[in-house]
């Protein structure tokens, strides 16, 4: 039985872990390696590091901390942030990351997904999708969300992009539901369920976790493979061991 994954997300800015609300107003939460070790000890199944300003600033992720994390961490981790070529991806993977996640650069040039899958296999390639519902009721993708002044709404429909990303070689999709991000009112179950129906690779929910029940609902109602959260873990509002006990009690397969 494959377990459902609990994934703390660490947004990295200037070598520190930060957290904002609705992708804005970042405050420093702590040191990268300290937080990575804390979550490993608490039973996190995987970690995701987003270098949130790399893409808007037109640079790739800083590999120094990737290597520091890889040396001490014995659970898988994924790195995202301005990776726009096979060479940049190779450097991050060789520094010790297990997977790389691409978002804005894949929207700029979708063939990047094909190139990464061809070079490293689909199992290394995660596509992050930032999605928001427009006034016409349609979910569409956003680009450069790490910097609110540069964030762009694209005409591309979220569902179309998820289908295309899989065809091109995405081995996993992380769906960031921006409308629910940071406000702790629960994952966007409607959107996740619609994306789940067209997603044959692992799907990770992101944005909105505020209580253990929200994780349960994402797993049982939207059938996602993993659930990602940041602020509730950083603040201590939800402790991962308690969360996993609750999920196990509700019949969700978790690694304890």
């Amino acid at each position: 039985m494959l377990s459902r994954r609990i994934i703390p997300c660490l947004d990295v800015r200037d070598g520190k872990v930060v957290k904002g609300v609705r992708f804005r107003d970042h405050v420093v939460m702590g040191e990268i390696v300290d937080l990575a070790l804390r979550y490993r000890d608490e039973g996190a199944d995987e970690l995701v590091f987003y270098d949130i300003t790399a893409s808007p600033e037109g640079r790739t992720v800083d590999r120094g901390w990737v290597e520091r994390v890889a040396r001490v961490i014995d659970i898988p981790f994924c790195v995202a942030g301005g990776i726009r070529s096979v060479d940049e991806a190779r450097a991050v993977l060789h520094a010790g990351a297990d997977k790389i996640s691409v978002n804005s650069p894949a929207l700029e040039r979708p063939a990047l997904i094909d190139e990464l899958a061809g070079a490293f296999g689909v199992q290394c390639v995660v596509v992050g999708v930032d999605s928001l519902r427009d006034s016409d009721g349609e979910w569409r993708v956003r680009q450069y969300t790490g910097d609110p002044s540069r964030t762009q709404a694209l005409p591309r429909r979220t569902l179309d992009w998820v289908v295309e990303a899989q065809k091109r070689g995405a081995g996993e999709i992380v769906l960031n539901c921006m409308g629910s991000d940071g406000v702790r009112q629960g994952y966007d179950l409607d959107q996740l369920a619609v994306v789940r129906a067209i997603c044959q690779v692992p799907l990770i929910a992101s944005g909105g976790a505020g209580a253990a029940e929200h994780f349960r609902d994402a797993f049982t109602e939207a059938d996602v493979d993993g659930a990602l959260a940041a602020s509730v873990f950083h603040s201590g509002a939800i402790a991962i061991p308690d969360l996993k006990q609750s999920l196990a009690g509700w019949g969700v397969a978790v690694r304890i």
């Binding site: 494959l2 199944d45 199992q123 081995g171």
Partner: peptide
């Protein structure tokens, strides 16, 4: 059955 098989299994 999602492929790749990705995650923790027994």
């Amino acid at each position: 059955l999602r492929v790749p098989h990705m995650g923790w299994n027994r």
